[in-house]
Every structure is written in C-alpha cells, then in structure tokens.
Design a protein around this nucleic acid. Sequence first.
DNA 1: GCCAACGTTGGC
DNA 2: GCCAACGTTGGC
Length: 158
Amino acid sequence: MAKKYWLMKSEPSVFSIDDLAKEPKKTTHWDGVRNYQARNFMRDEIKKGDSVLFYHSNTEPPCVVGVCEAVKEGYPDFTAFDPESKHYDSKGDGDKPRWFMVDIKLKKKFKKPVTLAEIKENKKLQKMRLVQKGNRLSVMPVEKKEFDEIVKMSENNG
DNA sequence: GCCAACGTTGGC
DNA sequence: GCCAACGTTGGC
C-alpha cells in the first residue's frame, strides 16, 4: 500500500511541536479529536509510516512547523472514557469506542515554518483543503506533491 | 427527516 | 476579540 500524507492541526497553546519534541521518544498520541471525518481518517486510513505535516492553528502566524511520522495506527481514544478529561464523551464506551487516535513521532522540525500566507500564495497548493474556505478539519489528507512542496518551501526559506 | 439553535474552530 | 463557517444536537 502506498504511503499517504496528512496534515494535522494543533493549537500551540495546547500542544505545540516543541511540546512534542520534549516527549519521551518524541512521540505522542493524537487525542481529543471530536470530528467524525477526522476520526475516520485516523481509524481507517492513517497507516504506520505515513508522513504528517504538523500545523499550528490559532496562532500568529498560522503555519506548518514540521514533519512527523505515524507510528501507531488507529486505536480508541481513551480520553473519551475519562470523566476527568476535557475530552470526555459519555456516548462511547470500551466496547464501542466512538473516537480514535493515532500515535505520531516527530521527524523534523522546520528551521523556518511555512506560513499559511505562503501556502496561499503558492499556486501549486491551491487545491489543499487547508486553504479552502471554511475548512475546519483538524486531520486532513494531503497530496504527495503538496507535501513535498511544503517541505521544499521550508528549506528555501531562510 | 427537517431545521433552528447552539457550540466550536480558526483566520484575521 | 470578532465573527463567519461549519458540525452537532434536539424538538417537532
């Protein structure tokens, strides 16, 4: 099966790429996603070895800050079962988990982030869901050529 | 099954 | 902090 490419959003005030870099083994479980489309990607489509762009949202400037690799495929998001958790969801249980997550490992933090403004200016990236109006998906598929283009932009910058 | 109300996301 | 866009919920 061909390797796939993804983009995942995180608010740096909640969990930034630097937080990921500080984790043991630079790996984290991507919990707290409560959107069905994003859930389906994580449950069904993200496979070990897939590449992921780490994106900082709700910050100035919004930007892609690095590359990660999926190291564990979809499994139940246990934070949904924990009443103490901010992400608690009473509608799921252990037998029928409602929400799923994957583990990702930091591969590379960009020396220079690729900002949303730069992505919008790049003609090759206009098809990305990221730049389409009203997009709110926190986990979305990315084309290989788009992924490669963003990595290239981070290298050309600075 | 429709749709208004509500909560959240996320750029600006 | 504002607000447009969107997803979800719940009454009917």
